[in-house]
Write a protein that binds this DNA or RNA. Structure first.
Length: 110
DNA sequence: TTTCTGACTCGAA
DNA sequence: CTTCGAGCCAGAA
């Protein structure tokens, strides 16, 4: 099994990501706000670096515009896009299409 | 302790 | 359209 350990901040981020349903995505800013550190969207992405060896689906996290800003941290140039498309998410030019349809809003779902 | 970096976001020019 | 600056916070050196 996978070991999920790290700072409290990272644990919150990873736990949040694991709650995202398949075929859905979320943004850094909303995650930060949800875990209590509103405005620390950058720090959320920073925690993702450690998620590289975890079960955290970092590919489901995109920026506000639905742009795959973190794709450069994956292997290859379109791995992140392929992962998203595998879940039924349409991605064109590093940008998620139909963002409103694939965006998972915890404030509405929970 | 300070300083720097970054997978962010928004607003302005 | 693009580019820049400021604000925000966690972690590393």
């Amino acid at each position: 099994m996978s070991k999920i350990q790290g700072s409290a901040f990272q644990l919150k981020v990873w736990n949040y990501l694991k709650k995202i349903p398949k075929g859905k995505v979320c943004t850094y800013g909303d995650i930060a706000e949800y875990i209590g550190t509103k405005g620390s969207a950058r720090t959320v992405g920073y925690a993702m670096n450690n998620s590289h060896s975890k079960d955290v689906p970092a590919h489901r996290v995109v920026n506000r515009k639905g742009l795959l800003t973190g794709k450069h941290h994956f292997d290859g140039t379109n791995l992140m896009q392929q992962l998203l498309e595998s879940e039924g998410i349409e991605v064109i030019e590093n940008q998620i299409q139909n963002l409103d349809s694939v965006y998972w809003d915890p404030t509405k779902e929970l």
